[in-house]
Each structure stands twice: as structure tokens, then as C-alpha cells.
């Protein structure tokens, strides 16, 4: 008499749930990190030039938009405020201007007057090197 039919079903299943969890975690992490790193970059139309070197990280990124406004980390500064900010940063770096890497992101359409004023103000603080990013043409 056959009472039951013992059938052993061996199912090798791959549990994908933790995998998806991890992938989403990574996705959210990279999205957040990339947004944080972009916060210092205003949406500007930079000069379209091939450039000379690849970008390197900077201590201070100053954005000059088309209207000539000075923007650092999303906040608009007056030139005098910028000077005070840079001076504070210099103190933090042990009054060594060579340790302060300044990147001046200026809109290609802005009058050089605003760039000149900024550059002259930085020169007063003995900052002799300013890096100018450009947008590589397509």
C-alpha cells in the first residue's frame, strides 16, 4: 500500500532581497555624496576651452555668476565679506597663502571687472595663485 508519495523538491533559490537592499543603499549613498560635492559649484556657463590640466580638489571655490555675484557654497557674498572669509580661512591654515587653493569659477559672459576686483582682493591677502576652470567643448 502506498500511503504517500514522498517527493523531495530541492529548490535552490537565490534570495535577491538583501542584494537589492545593498544596491539601493549604494545608489542613495553615491547620489547624496555627489550632491554634496556639487554644492560648491554653481550652474555657470564657463569659458569653452580645452584647458591645461585636470581638475583637482580645492579648499575654496568662488563662483562669479553672469551678474557678477560672488557665490561660495550657495551663499552670495559681498567682496568685503569674501575678503573676511578668505582671511579667516588663511588664519585657519596657519597664515600660509600657499596652502589655500582658490578656484575661481567665472561665467564666460560676466564682465572681467568682477573677476579683476576679486583677483585684486585676493592679491591683497597675498594669494598669488588662482585656478580657473573651463568647460571642455563637446
Amino acid at each position: 500500500m502506498r500511503l504517500s508519495k514522498r517527493r523531495r523538491v530541492t529548490s535552490i533559490g537565490m534570495n535577491m532581497t538583501p542584494m537589492i537592499d545593498v544596491v539601493f543603499q549604494l545608489l542613495i549613498f553615491f547620489m547624496t555624496v555627489s550632491q554634496v560635492s556639487e554644492v560648491n559649484r554653481e550652474r555657470l556657463e564657463l569659458p569653452r576651452q580645452p584647458g591645461a590640466e585636470d581638475q583637482r580638489p580645492a579648499v575654496l571655490t568662488i563662483n562669479v555668476n553672469q551678474r557678477g555675484e560672488l557665490i561660495i557654497g550657495g551663499i552670495v557674498y559681498e567682496l568685503s565679506e569674501l575678503v573676511a572669509l578668505v582671511a579667516d580661512e588663511l588664519v585657519r591654515l596657519g597664515d600660509d597663502p600657499s596652502r589655500l587653493t582658490v578656484v575661481l569659477r567665472a561665467d564666460r559672459r560676466v564682465s572681467s571687472e568682477f573677476v579683476n576686483r576679486t583677483v585684486a582682493a585676493l592679491a591683497q591677502l597675498d594669494i598669488r595663485k588662482v585656478r580657473i576652470p573651463v568647460q571642455v567643448p563637446d
Binding site: A52, Q55, R56, A123, K129, V136
Partner: peptide, 12 residues
């Protein structure tokens, strides 16, 4: 957009 630096040694 790809950004590069025009010059790392620009002096003021």
C-alpha cells in the same frame, strides 16, 4: 559637463 583647469599656476 567636463571641467578642466585652464592653468594651475595663474598668478595674481
Amino acid at each position: 559637463k567636463t571641467e578642466r583647469e585652464l592653468d594651475s599656476g595663474i598668478r595674481v
